[in-house]
Design a protein around this nucleic acid. Sequence first.
DNA 1: GGGTCTTGCGCG
DNA 2: AAAGCGCGCAAGACCC
Length: 556
Amino acid sequence: MYVVLSRSSRGIVALRLADDASEIAPAETVSEADLPAWVARLERERPRWVWDDTTRWYPQLLAAGVRVERCVDLRLSHALLRGSTLTATSTLALSPVGHWDRATPLADKPETHGALFDLDDDPAETAPTDPLAEFLLQRDATATAAEPGRIGLLLAAESAGALIACEMKSAGLPWHADVHERLLADLLGDRPRGLERPAKLEELLDRMRAILGTHDVNPDSPAELLKALRRTGLQVASTRSWELKEIDHPVIAPLLEYKKLSRLQTANGWNWLDTWIADGRFRPDYVPGGAATGRWGASGGGALQLPKQIRGAVIADPGWKLVVADAAQLEPRILTALSADRAMAEAGRGDLYEGIVASGAVKTRAEAKVAMLGAMYGATAGDGGRLMPALTRAFPRAIAVVEAAARVGERGDIVTTRLGRSSPLPGEAWRELQESASVQGASDALQRAARGQSRGWGRFTRNFIVQGTAAEWALCWMAGLRGRLWDLRGGRFTDRPHLVFFLHDEVIVHTPPELADEVVAQLEAAASDAGRLIFGEMPVRFPITTAVVDNYSQAK
DNA sequence: GGGTCTTGCGCG
DNA sequence: AAAGCGCGCAAGACCC
């Protein structure tokens, strides 16, 4: 059963549909206040809730203690179906851009009344905002796809991700502000009063000034710092840390330390604590599908960039544990499965990089890693580029897949992940440059620029198929895990083991300690499920590493 | 004074 | 090991 929800001036309209989308009963109207109880009652029949945007419905349900098993997020699904090459000839994909094509969550838009059949403010918009009409269009697009199972799985996984994103924000990542403050004090010194620097930074700055023999240099200004370094006779093109590391000069050590600590202070210092931690929880907005490749984005507090330095402040509640799990060498394994490269699958029976060494392609594990990253990112120079021929000889099928994806991008075409997420087309400026460089008599400089731009888009599409399919694996892993965790015991959502963090190929589960071993088993089971769901019976393993810990910094 | 671009760096 | 992919954020630079 499906239940399509929409808001109207009279309240919430709920329409029950059978699995073939035929209407079961006339629409019902429910008040906002009654919605959570009404949803909880109907949830026993395990419907799939159909709504315009999960962020507009689910947070208030969670706040009322109501968790749902599954949904269709029409906005996210629409974006996938609109762009996918698997549904390119569908009515949905051929219809004009409209209400369902906005990139940002619909919640960002002020509430309109009579939303069921309302047209958007933009008079050019003719597509209906009616969720039932949109849902039927989406079903049609899926059913008429060449392989409905692929795109269907992707839509289900994306919608499950939308539920998980809301649940993780609702539960929050357990965060000890006092521990965080102690970490800051150890590294930076006491919290400064006004705008002055913390003691440790001031000390480092004094040392740098003494060495440089100047007082008027602002180390936080790259331009000023660059000038000061050049006055001292250092040949540098920028003030990037990796470039400074190559230089032998007494000012470099304190400067690099200053940069590191200054970064901590500005990105995750006291201001960050004041802004983002409340009630012992960090609650960023997770943005499913935030990156073109299908990876999630996040906003508020830089949730996907938590530096290792402060992960010790992520601490399980008293009487609880954190289970930290990550997929080992996920992207190369995804490439193995995408290409059905048996030699690489063989190398991946254990540690993939050791396996590549054992195959004889490269000499060391470090080389294997650089070579694989180079293959997936499109390295042209350095060790990554240098190792490519050997890697290509050992694993021709795998390398052929990424090379083919690069060629597609270089000519401005679209690539598609395993489940059907398609890459965007390059923009107008890209095409204009390609065209202007292809006319008779175009200058060498213009042709070089066009070639560089073309290769750049090729690197994007090369990586897109791997990163995007890895994101699909991660979504399937998490969606399966979510159901498995729910089944581990009864009670409210946050009384059971539950997800509290997700970072591309890594998750954190907050769990009562007596269930930690069971959580580990479910993490592993969900990982093998994900591989089978996406790739079928293929001899590619997706091992995960797990750690049961009290705080995040104890993992890895 | 405010808005946008650039630089640099954190994460995967 | 090298500077190849995807992001978000803060501060300074730059422009009006």
